[in-house]
């Protein structure tokens, strides 16, 4: 449950952002990152719908590589 998914900010409206990763868009709360200046195009680590940390594009890419590998065997698993 502590998994964090890196996503890219597409739009910001107050504490709410529309974020995208791998073609999937989600509403994300920025309420826990009020101390961090954020702009469209930035990457954030998202956990249960809340951005918990701003990261660089390189860090986001590294994380996605491992999640691709980790999640692949899950496909078709008993859910």
């Amino acid at each position: 449950m502590c998994l964090g998914i890196p996503m890219q900010i597409k739009t910001i409206d107050g504490f709410n952002a529309r974020c995208e990763a791998k073609g999937v868009e989600r509403d994300v709360s920025l309420f826990m990152l009020q101390h961090e200046p954020l702009a469209t195009g930035d990457f954030v680590v998202v956990h249960v719908g809340y951005a918990i940390q701003k990261v660089t594009a390189e860090e986001a890419e590294t994380a996605w590589q491992i999640y691709d590998e980790m999640l692949a065997p899950e496909a078709g698993r008993d859910a």
């Binding site: 449950m1 502590c2 504490f15 709360s29 309420f31 826990m32 956990h47 249960v48 719908g49 809340y50």
Partner: peptide, 16 residues
């Protein structure tokens, strides 16, 4: 239920 990472967003929800 959750550890710190998951409980913090619950706290954020309450504060907001």
């Amino acid at each position: 239920a959750g550890f710190e990472t998951t409980t913090a967003p619950v706290a954020a929800m309450l504060v907001e």
